[in-house]
Structures are given as structure tokens and as C-alpha cells.
Amino acid sequence: MSTHEHPDYLGHHFETPQQQYDSSKLGMWLFLATEILLFAGLFCAYSVYRSNHPEIFVYAHQYLDKTLGGINTLVLICSSLTMAWAVRSAQTNQRRGLILLLSMTLLFGCCFLGIKYVEYEQKWKHGLLWGKRFHPHTEETRSHEKTAPSAVPPAIASQPAPVAPPPPTGEDRSLIEAAPRGPAGLAAGAIEERKPGHEGSRPSNVQIFFGIYFLMTGLHGLHVIGGMSVIGWLLVRSVKGHFTSEYFTPVDLGGLYWHLVDLIWIYLFPLLYLIG
């Protein structure tokens, strides 16, 4: 090994701590890019369905609890603050501050998950779930059912029962039978048919919104749990006194990850809760 100082934390294949720090940082940024792209698929699905069926989103978002969502947004912003502060404490060798701030971040994370649990439970109780499991039975939806006969009854929405295809109307129709209910995704005609319904009446395929809601917040929730495990691990290491102003890379990288998790929520909140 080379004669110059080679501290314990420095990998054998790195020349200097600076090189190791830069490498770790670049690696983390790349990893964050992959995380963003992982969510990008869902954001993309969101945009496709929202632009094709705006009425579903306008209607269904009313069933989300804006207050709880707003509180959760605040909780995560606070946790980002404590995390950033924790990194600063590590940089300035304040071990007790670091331990305190990491614990606070962890606490905020728990708080977020707790509130999310309450929200999920409400949705579950009212049957406002995804695709197959969508059986709404809130007071409000019932009354809509009566006033809006065009709405798809939950029994049909819940099972893919084939509906008789519409009879061909002209010579130019394809010989292939129409799908029971068309995909309607990118086809221009589908948008015409589904003009946003008048206030209050339930559009068809509301389950799409809840599917997207659960997928996005669910995947985000898993990332919160992942981030909290990382913070827990950082907490254990900082109690053991592993981090100094010389070496605080893991705290720094853990912080970056946590900020990303927060940032994704900052986008999810308005996109899902604040429509219309």
C-alpha cells in the first residue's frame, strides 16, 4: 500500500478521501436519477389517464382528505429540514446534535406513515380502492347513484363482465368485433365520448384514479420506509461515533435520498389532492 496516510474508511482502490467522496456522491446522484425514472412511469400513466379522462380525476379527488394530505406535506418538509441540519451537524462534528436530529427525522417519518395509514383505512372502509376492489359505499356516492342513472353501478365496475359489442354501423367497420369496453387510452374518439359529466354525477372508470392513487402513494410509502431504515442505520452508526467532520459521506448520501423521497411527495400532493 502507498506510504501516504490511508485512513480506515478509505477503500483500498481510492487514492484520496476526496476521490472517494466525489465518487460516492456521483453514484448517489445516479441512483436518485434511477429512482426518479422509476416514478416517471407512474407519473406518465397519471398524465395519460388524466388527459384522456379529466372527469375521473376531477370527480374522484374529492374523496381524498386534503387536510391530512396537507399535514403530511408539512411533516415531510420539516423532516427535510431536520435531515439537512443533521448533515450539517455531522460536518461540524456535533455528535449529539446529529443523533438528536436524525431521531427527529425518524419521528417525522413515523408520523407521515401514521397519517397515511389513517387515510388508507378510510379509503378501505369506503371501498374506494383500485380496479377490481372498487366497491364504493359512502353516503355521497350512494346518493349520486340514484340521481345519475348513467353511472356504472359498482357491480359492473368491479368485474370485467363482457358487454355486448355495439352493432356495426357502416360498411367501413372492421370485421373484428369491438372490445367489450375499448381501451380508450390513446384513441381520439374515446375522449369525445367521455365529456366531463355534470357536477356530481359519477363518471365511469373512477377506479382508475384510485388505482393510480394507491400505486403512487404506495410506492412512495415503500420509499419512506426505505429511507427510514437508512436513517435508522445512520443513527446506530452515529451513536457508535463513526462520523466525524473528516468522514460523513453516509449521512450526506442518506440525506440526499431522504430529500428525494420528500420531493416526490411534494409532487404527488398537488397532483392527487389538489385537482380542479
Binding site: 383500485w130 380496479g131 377490481k132 363482457p162 369496453r181 380508450a184 387510452g185 390513446l186 377506479q207 382508475i208
Partner: peptide, 19 residues
């Protein structure tokens, strides 16, 4: 989709298989 029936890609549930 397979395990829980979310329906994002399932035309019977309003989803889009071309997506």
C-alpha cells in the same frame, strides 16, 4: 395488476393495454 387487479393495463377495468 396480476396479483391485485389494479386495472391500469386492463381494458375491462378502464385501463389501456397499449400503455
Amino acid at each position: 395488476e396480476r396479483a391485485l387487479g389494479v386495472g391500469i393495463f386492463d381494458p375491462a377495468l378502464g385501463g389501456d393495454p397499449v400503455l
